[in-house]
Simulated assay, not measured.
Amino acid sequence: MPVKFTKMHGAGNDFVMIDTISQRIKLRPRDIRRIADRRRGVGCDQVLLVEPPEQPAADFRYRIFNADGSEAGQCGNGARCFARFVRHRRLTHLNKMVVETGSSLMTLSLMDNHAVEVNMGPPVFTPAEIPFLRDQPAPEYDLTAAGEQLRVGALSMGNPHAVLRVSDVNDGSLERLGEAMRSHEDFPEGANAGFLEIVDRQNVRLRVFERGVGETEACGSGACAAVVYGQRMDWLDDRVTVELTGGKLTVQWQGDGKSVLMTGPTAISFEGTIRL
């Protein structure tokens, strides 16, 4: 089965975009793993599908598959690439669109220089909705991981996140901690593990280990989660530049009940066809 695709990235977080509207295909988990394989396939952090919407309020349905074949509920960097992709493929003329994901409706706005702003919706702090095995919501929680006693922020941006403040994101021990946090038993569905280094109240550095993927050069929902956590702890202002390995994102949040806005770049790497 030949499948047409477009390879894209948002600040180094790379995706294979597949339009299932103009080509009628059904991908199995093993197909996703084959596409994502960096030696035998195209190679990517996640495979993103464009589908017709199921909800009347949406323009498209946006499905997200991790490199291991599992489906995710949210991906902020992927959402930016999604918006540029549907315009690039002339599936829409809109500069502002609503897409449905596995967890919510999102508004995507195309801006100048191929940047896209994503309305990620309000963060979720209720432990049962993250999900996270704690009784009451709190700005921070105790967590034991890799034999260490940690204080982490836990929240959902449409997917679960655990965020730890560190003095240096280049610390060699973070890979071990990241693996332990993203598969921690207190997160029944796993978590994206973020390590937050605060430069000042408007600038941070971030390193993220995504569930189902591993370490990525950027994570949009992870950037949002880290900034929200930092604001709740009164470490950060309401507009923050997040520096990741692959580039910079801007995150804005006005506080409880408000949506998180995330803005960043998109790029098309190449297009092709893979036979599955």
Rank of each mutant, 00 (worst) to 15 (best):
I25C: 06
I25A: 07
K26D: 04
K26N: 13
R28N: 11
P29C: 09
P29D: 09
P29K: 08
D31P: 14
D31T: 04
I32G: 01
I32Q: 11
R33I: 13
R33E: 11
R34H: 11
I35L: 11
A36H: 01
D37I: 14
R38G: 01
R40N: 14
G41V: 13
G43E: 03
C44W: 11
C44M: 05
D45I: 13
V47L: 04
V50D: 03
P52E: 12
E54C: 04
Q55P: 04
Q55T: 05
P56H: 03
P56T: 10
P56K: 06
A57V: 03
F60V: 09
F60A: 10
R61Y: 08
R61Q: 13
Y62W: 07
R63T: 12
F65R: 02
A67N: 00
D68E: 03
D68Q: 01
D68F: 10
G69Y: 15
E71Y: 10
E71K: 14
A72D: 02
G73F: 05
G73I: 08
G73M: 11
Q74F: 14
C75E: 05
C75V: 06
G76I: 12
G76C: 06
N77E: 08
G78I: 02
A79C: 06
R80D: 12
C81H: 08
C81D: 06
V86T: 14
R87C: 09
H88W: 08
H88R: 13
R89A: 15
L91S: 08
L91N: 02
L91M: 06
T92L: 07
H93K: 10
H93I: 15
L94Y: 02
N95V: 04
K96A: 06
M97L: 15
M97N: 00
V98H: 00
G102D: 14
L105C: 07
M106L: 15
T107Q: 08
L108M: 06
S109W: 01
M111C: 08
N113L: 08
N113W: 03
H114I: 15
V116P: 09
M120N: 09
M120D: 02
G121W: 03
V124Y: 06
F125I: 14
T126H: 15
P127S: 12
A128S: 15
